[in-house]
Design a binder for these strands. Structure first.
Length: 255
DNA sequence: ATGGCTTCATAGTGAAGA
């Protein structure tokens, strides 16, 4: 079973690339973030024509998440339980006995911003929600844009990023608290190239200079870790015309 | 490396992303 995640930074702009990604990799599940589409504007027919089913939760201009899958999604839930968040950042499904949660964790803007407080509060609520999910579904995968680089090696210049949003201690602690639920950063299960990142700033030739951060992650429960065969970043996607600033991340799990 | 893109909502520029 192949699961993938990609922050597309506008599905309207990136739809042809998403369809190409499906054709090339044929993932069983693809989680999307930052679709930036209201639900009545979602390109359902294009995705059905590609042989995928889809569920989505979107809004105008910002945020928006979707899960594409070969098999029919079951037990679809949107948002975080007991949290009335107007921002559309979470959608979850059950596919082939695996609970798949697609998350777009807030950016936070800066550590002095109100949005940073929202991010930390949001992460606390996500943590409680995932704790319950894990009790209900031992086979749990949380894929998405976490907007947190968990370790020094996930940042091109840890000195520069020290204390800044995406790499601040409180954010890293919140990430570690998710891991402490019994989840694993699947990327680090395997030997990986140094300076592996999933996001590069559009400005300043960030990609060409590999000034990136690894902020898109796939966390797996112990039940899934046992059978996880690979985790990789599709870095080449960032070289296409009009790329998203994020690259997709993929895992293969023997189910 | 403190903005130098890119997107969206607009119809000029401004907000937001990370």
């Amino acid at each position: 079973m192949k699961l993938a995640t990609w922050n597309v930074n506008s599905l309207k702009v990136r739809l042809p690339q998403v369809l190409d990604f499906l054709a090339v990799h044929k993932p069983d599940v693809l989680c999307l973030q930052e679709t930036k589409l209201e639900d009545d504007k979602f390109p359902v027919l294009d995705i059905l024509s590609a042989g995928y089913q889809v569920v989505f939760s979107g809004q105008k201009t910002y945020n928006g998440v979707a899960i594409l899958s070969l098999q029919a999604p079951q037990e679809v839930t949107m948002g975080i339980a007991d949290f009335d968040d107007p921002q559309k950042r979470v959608i979850a499904v059950l596919i082939n006995g695996v609970r798949v949660v697609c998350v777009y964790i807030p950016n936070g803007e800066s550590v002095t911003s109100e949005k940073y407080g929202y991010k930390l509060d949001w992460l606390r609520r996500l943590n409680s929600c995932l704790k319950m999910e894990l009790e209900k579904y031992p086979r749990l995968a949380i894929l998405g844009d976490y907007n947190i680089a968990p370790e020094d090696r996930d940042v091109h210049d840890p000195k520069y990023w020290e204390g800044k949003v995406l790499f601040s201690e409180r954010e890293k602690a919140a990430f570690n608290e998710l891991v402490a639920l019994g989840l694993c950063d699947s990327f680090r299960l395997f030997e990986q190239a140094e300076k592996s990142y999933t996001w590069w700033d559009y400005r300043m030739n960030g990609f060409k200079r590999n000034l990136g951060l690894r902020i898109d992650h796939i966390l797996l429960s112990a039940e899934l870790v046992k059978n996880c065969k690979s985790c990789s970043i599709d870095r080449d996607r960032r070289t296409h015309d009009r790329p998203s600033d994020h690259a997709p991340v993929m895992v293969e799990i023997e189910i």
